[in-house]
């Protein structure tokens, strides 16, 4: 009897999810024993055409990490969907958009202008830009189309399971693979490899009373490692973030930044975090409230660091270019 087939793919990603799998250390050999790996661009030399010839639904498990931001990634998402029985959105980028999702504050033109022309260390007198196709003596070279908007995997193809995290922690990755091997998966559409509570459930810090008179950036103070960071004025997304990671960031005195995505009952993670942060400000005076809130220079970045594409609004308005954070704040205050 042939072994079940496993594919791993990386789209708009940093490679951290690949490392998350490799961090199984010796257990990776058990995985290699249990599965027949048919695609793993980071580690193994299979080509796309090897996947194209596979029958539909013949890949038993596909761990797809990275967001969808160009036509190649979109193509592979569709291809792997066709060929896979169980398609898993693996890691924050595939789940909610991740850090690449922040590109949704801009568009293709703005990004290309910056990357290929405006960065201080770029010398591009000829104004060279990536082209979709380019003729060379040897033939036609093509590049994928770069889209304006970053999307999550589930916004492109139907997905069976989501494994959150940037990257998913080792214990959870082990757990998920184990569950697949043992056939112990919940109903399709579920988030696996995480808990149904928030990061606060994993965090061992002492919580007393949430009344904020001032927000601090993480570099402004050295927080007390035993007390809740939010209560000390450091913005921690933990209360609005799905748990199960074991709160490793908190254990090194850094606030949670929300990489595991929204808790089960929350539709828009950033909106909820915003609501919670505002609700605990200890003031009823409009001028003082403005002063307290001024300490958060980039509300969008704070609330949607890993989840902008998965949010209700998904991206900044395309028509007018995104206002830089500072100008946007000034405009909001003038009204």
């Amino acid at each position: 009897m042939s072994k079940p087939k496993l594919a791993l793919y990386w789209a708009a990603s940093c490679g951290g999810c690949e490392i998350a799998v490799v961090r199984l250390y010796a257990k990776i050999l058990d995985v290699a024993d249990a599965f027949d790996i048919v695609l793993w661009p980071c580690i193994m030399d299979f080509k796309y055409k090897d996947v194209e010839v596979l029958p539909d639904k013949s890949i038993d498990l596909c761990l797809f990490n990275g967001a969808i931001r160009n036509s190649e990634q979109e193509h592979m998402a569709h291809l792997l969907r066709e060929k896979s029985k169980v398609l898993v959105a693996f890691g924050a980028c595939a789940h909610t958009g991740g850090i690449p999702g922040l590109a949704n504050v801009a568009d293709r033109e703005t990004i290309f202008q910056r990357v290929y022309h405006d960065t201080p260390s770029t010398a591009n007198g000829d104004g060279v830009r990536p082209q979709l196709s380019y003729q060379v003596p040897e033939g036609e070279l093509t590049l994928p189309k770069f889209y304006d908007t970053v999307r999550t995997l589930a916004q492109v193809v139907p997905v069976e399971y989501f494994v959150p995290g940037c990257p998913p922690v080792k214990e959870q990755v082990e757990g998920v693979i184990q569950a697949v091997v043992e056939g112990r998966l919940p109903a399709p559409g579920s988030v696996v490899g995480a808990s149904d509570k928030t990061v606060c459930d994993n965090c061992t810090r002492v919580r007393e009373e949430k009344r904020i008179r001032r927000f601090y950036r993480p570099w402004e103070i050295v927080p007390d490692p035993s007390r809740c960071l939010l209560e000390q004025g450091v913005i921690c997304a933990g209360p609005a973030t799905r748990g199960g990671c074991g709160a490793p960031c908190l254990s090194v005195n850094m606030p949670c930044r929300g990489c595991y995505g929204p808790p089960p009952n929350v539709v828009d993670q950033g909106g909820k975090l915003l609501s919670a942060l505002a609700s605990i400000i200890d003031s009823q005076d409009p001028a003082e409230i403005e002063r307290v809130v001024d300490a958060i220079p980039d509300v969008l970045g704070t609330c949607y660091l890993f989840g902008l594409p998965a949010s209700l609004l998904r991206r900044v308005r395309l028509e007018g270019n995104a206002l830089p954070a500072k100008e946007a704040v000034e405009l909001a205050k003038a009204l």
Partner: peptide, 9 residues
């Protein structure tokens, strides 16, 4: 109670 994680907000 299944969702409350004791954040105290």
């Amino acid at each position: 109670e299944a969702a409350c994680s004791g954040c105290k907000v």
